[in-house]
Structures are given as structure tokens and as C-alpha cells.
């Protein structure tokens, strides 16, 4: 038998400490729209397979094993119903791995907020709050 009780206890404590830290960071960052670093991406109707919204577009990447995707879909639908000229497109990440790779999407849901020309203004990974989406849309429409 392995006699790793002291080592094992240390592993438990370190694992729980790191997991707590990661959990707090994830909770704080989850769904918050952020500026897109590096090269600014521009998505076209051809990339998306659907027309862009007249003033802005919310692009949601979802997957089959994604618990918060349904709630995200509901939030984005509510926002598009409120703000005229905004389209909501949902893309199955698995079937568009080309886009997933080129945009470096690691999680679902990831929401991209595009302006009228298709430029990615903000990006949120994880379920966003409605107020944050509206705020980011204001930025996309205002420019």
C-alpha cells in the first residue's frame, strides 16, 4: 500500500486552496464584456452565414454540453427585443471550428458584440448579465 497520508493531506489542502482562488477569479470575470486585444477582428455575413444586424449584432457561440447557453440565449433575445436594429445569431461551436479557432474561443457560451460593420467591439466568455450586454451594445451602436 502507498503510505501517502501526509502527502495526500497536503495535496488535498493545496488543491482546495487553488480551486477556491480559481473559482473566485472565474466568478468575477465570468460573462463580463471585455475589449478584444490584439488584431481587431471583423466578421462578415459570409463568415456568419447570416446577415448582420442593421446597427449591431450579438453573436453567441454555444455547444451541446453547455449549461449556461440556454440562459444566455434568453438574455440576448430579451436584449434584441428591446433594442431595435440588433440581431442575435447563435452558432454551434462544434460545427464552426474554423471560426472558433480563428477567434480563439475556448469556452461556451462566448458572446461577441459586433458593430454595424461587423467589427468585434467587445467579447464576453461565460453567461453575461443583461445590463452588461446593453452597456456593450451602447458602445457598439454609439461609435
Amino acid at each position: 500500500m502507498l503510505s501517502c497520508s501526509v502527502t495526500g493531506l497536503a495535496v488535498v489542502l493545496v488543491t482546495l486552496a487553488v480551486a477556491t482562488l480559481v473559482g473566485v477569479i472565474v466568478r468575477r470575470r465570468n460573462g463580463v464584456p471585455r475589449d478584444v486585444g490584439g488584431d481587431v477582428e471583423r466578421l462578415t455575413t459570409g463568415d456568419l452565414g447570416a446577415p448582420l444586424g442593421e446597427r449591431a449584432t450579438l453573436v453567441q457561440f454555444s455547444s451541446a454540453f453547455c449549461q449556461p447557453c440556454r440562459a444566455t440565449r434568453r438574455i440576448l433575445s430579451e436584449v434584441t427585443a428591446m433594442v431595435p436594429g440588433v440581431a442575435h445569431l447563435e452558432i454551434d461551436a462544434e460545427s464552426r471550428l474554423d471560426l472558433v479557432r480563428s477567434l480563439n474561443i475556448m469556452r461556451t457560451p462566448t458572446v461577441l458584440i459586433l458593430d454595424a460593420s461587423g467589427r468585434v467591439v467587445k467579447r464576453a466568455s461565460g453567461q453575461p448579465r443583461k445590463a452588461d450586454v446593453i452597456g456593450a451594445l451602447g458602445l457598439a451602436v454609439g461609435e
Binding site: 477556491t20 473559482g23 455547444s63 474561443i105 475556448m106
Partner: peptide, 20 residues
């Protein structure tokens, strides 16, 4: 622990990464 304490499903997050 992440699932129990924060409701965050790390296993679910692995899906897209595995697919990539």
C-alpha cells in the same frame, strides 16, 4: 470542488477544448 462551491462545471468546459 469548483462544481460544489461555485456551481462551475469544469468538465463541461473541457468539451469545446477536446473538440478543438
Amino acid at each position: 470542488f469548483l462544481n460544489a462551491a461555485f456551481g462551475f462545471c469544469l468538465g463541461c468546459e473541457m468539451f469545446l477544448i477536446i473538440r478543438r
